[in-house]
Amino acid sequence: MCGRDDGKTTRFLVVFLFGGIALASRKAVKDTISAWVAVGPALLVQIIFVYVPLAFAAWVSLHRWNMIRPMRWVGMQNYINLMQDDAFWRSMYLTFIYVIGTVPASIALALLLALLLNVKWIKGMAFFRVMFYIPVITAMAAAAVVWGWLFEPSGGLINYLIGTVGISPKGWLNSPDWAMLALIIVGVWKRIGYNTIFFLAGLQTIPGVYYEAARIDGAGPWKSFFSITLPLLSPTTLFVAILQFIASFRVFVSVSVMTQGGPARTTRVITYFLYENAFIYLRMGYASAIAIVMFVLLFLFTLFQFRASRKRVHYQ
């Protein structure tokens, strides 16, 4: 049964095998070409306009350059100067204040809203979600212009509203004491809706049976919030916190539109310090050194974020 067509079968097998390999490799070559044709253009754009600039920043940061006279090599001098520059540390401090002001507030408010929206019997949840989301899709620059009007010391809505509850009017954007708070308020306002979406997604992964069991065991709403919701939500909270931390660290647009780092440089956060050095003082080498330091810091924060988001997935 098997012996009869041996020669033929073998020949057929050989042809089939080699033909298959040849075809397969032709297909592999064709696939590789197709793949590079597909990814090549996008990759090239990313390399030219993201990676090359980053590398160029590292190179420029080792020079003194005002774009008028040629670049002059200074080695690590820009970094040494930066570490000894009070203005740099002051801007880092102001950034820190902004971060401390925005991160906990925007997280707490977002969690509160998400808890309200997550109630099972609520009607119009989608509508409220959209209402809370409007500031997120609005351009920060345009929103900052509107907030500039709200914060207007005489005739602005904010001073009128706080006046109705007996608080004396503030100078807000014109006042060294209040400008940072104004920026923090805008920053929190802009991000609440965004953070709420993540908390809502997180809350919806907590099985309802846990609450049911807790209720049967006699736990009240507070008890079940602190012993079920909060612990099970902690990966989401960590994720949102890091995302918000990075966003707050990068604050620029509101500062650029509303205060330009003022008054008396009380809102000159790190990004604005970078912007000023580059485009007002034309210290390109120094500005590049600031950019590189910022990049390294943000890189570390983002690594944290990736670890946190892996944890988040793991929990689900």
Partner: peptide, 9 residues
């Protein structure tokens, strides 16, 4: 914010 300076250049 990091690439704005070198991208400009």
């Amino acid at each position: 914010e990091v690439t704005m300076v070198p991208l400009y250049l």
